[in-house]
Design a protein around this nucleic acid. Structure first.
Lengths: 379, 379
DNA sequence: ATGAAAGCGCTAACAT
DNA sequence: ATGTTAGCGCTTTCAT
């Protein structure tokens, strides 16, 4: 039992703890903690001896114990509908990258757009003492469970949706303006009858009021509604009448057939549109599929313009013009704001909730042509 | 200070703990824990009183404290190259679904295929006391850090890659057979010169030996190499010569241009192929793009067959025939095996590591035609 | 069937 | 600059 070359080692094959390191370095646990944690005072010599011991033992702090003591877990939560969806997995990557830089990790919870699952997710995350949560809320009205999180002193940032009248920061794309720009582009190309194909939350359906001069959609801000607003606003701004028949809304999460039917119905109108604006990637896919199946030539016979970029939009012919939102950056931004709040806890009450709107970009490709009704349009 | 209707409540706005519940129910902490946890004995009456108190207080167990005591965190880790990649996000969803059923959560760590990041990821997960880890290892040889995890008594399941000679369970697709089937299909359609376009780990390059009668590729099993094996094997089985010029391998993570060049080089051969087998989704995309740009008609002038299904493969014309791996199910299966190991810890040493190979499916669509060399092929 | 008490590994307040 | 000590919230013997 030599003691000189081999100072105390933990007998077990288990992970060494701070006591082991301290013993090996011949100091107290508190000193070892200070030396390793880099806080408080410790002499250079002790610092070296301790980190040497830690290295030899392969010591790694037990973050559970640290969390218990400090209240900081170095874990944040991401609550979304479905991580396998391209929007969320891209945002997730942005969140992860920020978290890593902060020494934090991310737990993902899928809700499938079910409020009950979202409520459970927040409870579970709270019970794991997460430092904060990025959430894409199912509902923009029912947010008692989210308030409960902030009430517990845990910062929350809402992604992709503003929460009405909750003092919660949010990061969303400029859905209304992005759509407005796209519709403006169609109008500039001579289109007068432009269809809007989109999805809406079945639980929070919009109530559309289509008027001769002004049209509007009631309900709180959310991407699906804001895009309709952008559409309506631009039409009105150009003095064009809105036509209820040109607006097809299917419930979110509908079977692909429902979307196809919606597109087909619009195409079959007596006075059909000359351009289709598809307000989300699912609709864009359905519309493109159907047009392609029907042999409708794009953009010669029908223009197509969509929201959300996807890999395939440049692979098909014609390449689809789209409005893109910076999904990765939205995740990144949400996470950055979250960590700011974690570092500087708001003084209770928290104010109004900062709303960050990130710009979309319009990618002009080949799926929009001049309107057939608009004679004299060059190639 | 009425005590009858309002038994003790925690004064603070903070989360109530077991002591609060116990006090309100008028029992000891141990009893409250038993009643809530559903273990040990407790009278029906006490049980009801305790859960009533818990409900009233909005009590939720503090899992950090529970983990500290029990050693079980109800968290598992998923270590992958990049969660925004479709393969991983789909697998992730499978893992999450299983975890949820088990009352567990998932922390994701991205490695960008960097060994150093993977090593750090495993260390970090260990320090969070995760119950197990699903990992897609960067390297199939360098797995000391993974062994360290199992040595710490934490189960690991490897996804998409077998670990050579490590006693670690793995779940992979039947890359070799899936490819063999696809190549067999091409041969049956009369193709004799079939190009193989794929990617390989820059750190673990394969050494190809192309012989008159037999060809082989050295190196441990991994998807990229196994697909080459399936290709070579099928060629040999059909008595067809392998041609080194028809095999183009770019380093994984190469810029798109590199892939495009590789495809172009194969097309420009003096004796060009009549069919292209693209061994991963990136290559499929590059090949399709280039063919489309060059105006090469598929499948009339060139057949195309790929590995991995993607949304766009049915959107483009012709629709691409592909070999698909069940990504969601692979994640699900890996997680199921992980939880089995968590529930029944292996008796140290752990045996040889169970290898699960999940079948791929061949989706015969429109991108494969009869070879031009093969006269008399019907439409 | 219930309670008392120890202790998981760490950090932070206090003492030296 | 370093050591001592208490305690985070829970689970789990061990008594009763």
């Amino acid at each position: 039992m030599a003691t000189e070359p081999g100072p105390p080692r933990p007998a077990k094959g288990a992970r060494p703890n701070l006591k082991d390191v301290a013993a090996r370095a011949g100091v107290s646990r508190a000193t070892a903690a200070r030396a390793l944690g880099g806080y408080g005072y410790s002499s250079r010599e002790v610092m070296e001896r301790v980190s040497e011991a830690a290295r030899e033992l392969g010591y790694e702090v037990n973050r559970i114990a640290r969390t218990m003591r400090s209240g900081k877990s170095d874990i944040i939560g991401f609550v979304c509908a479905d991580i396998s969806d391209a929007f969320f997995s891209s945002a997730m990557r942005g969140i992860c990258d920020v978290a890593r830089r902060q020494g934090s990790k991310v737990i993902v919870m899928n809700t499938d757009d079910q409020l009950a699952q979202e409520q459970e997710a927040t409870r579970v995350l709270l019970s794991h003492e997460v430092d904060g949560i990025v959430i894409t809320p199912v509902s923009v009205r029912e947010h008692a469970h989210i308030d409960a999180v902030t009430d517990a002193g845990v910062p929350v940032v809402s992604l992709d949706r503003h929460l009405s009248d909750a003092g919660i920061d949010s990061v969303v794309a400029d859905n209304e303006d992005g759509t407005a720009h796209a519709i403006g582009h169609l109008i500039a190309r001579g289109h007068r009858r432009i269809a809007f194909l989109g999805s809406v939350q079945p639980e929070e359906p919009p109530s559309l009021r289509i008027g001769k001069l002004r049209s509007s959609v009631a309900g709180p801000s959310r991407p699906s509604l804001d895009r309709i607003r952008g559409y309506l606003r631009t039409l009105a701004g150009a003095g064009l009448p809105a036509d209820r028949d040109l607006i097809a809304l299917v419930p979110q999460g509908s079977a692909p057939e429902r979307r196809l039917e919606a597109v087909a119905a619009v195409l079959a109108l007596d006075d059909p549109p000359t351009a289709l604006f598809t307000a989300d990637s699912y609709m864009t896919k359905s519309a493109f599929s159907l047009l392609s199946e029907l042999g409708v030539r794009v953009p010669e016979e029908m223009s197509l313009l969509g929201f959300d970029d996807l890999e395939w939009t440049t692979l098909v012919r014609p390449r689809i013009s789209v409005v893109v939102q910076p999904t990765y950056d939205m995740g990144r931004t949400a996470a950055e704001q979250l960590f700011t709040k974690i570092a500087h806890p708001a003084p209770a009450g928290g104010g109004r909730g900062r709303r960050t709107v990130v710009p979309t970009r319009f990618l002009d490709r080949d799926s929009v042509g001049g309107s057939l009704l608009d004679k004299g349009t060059g190639p």
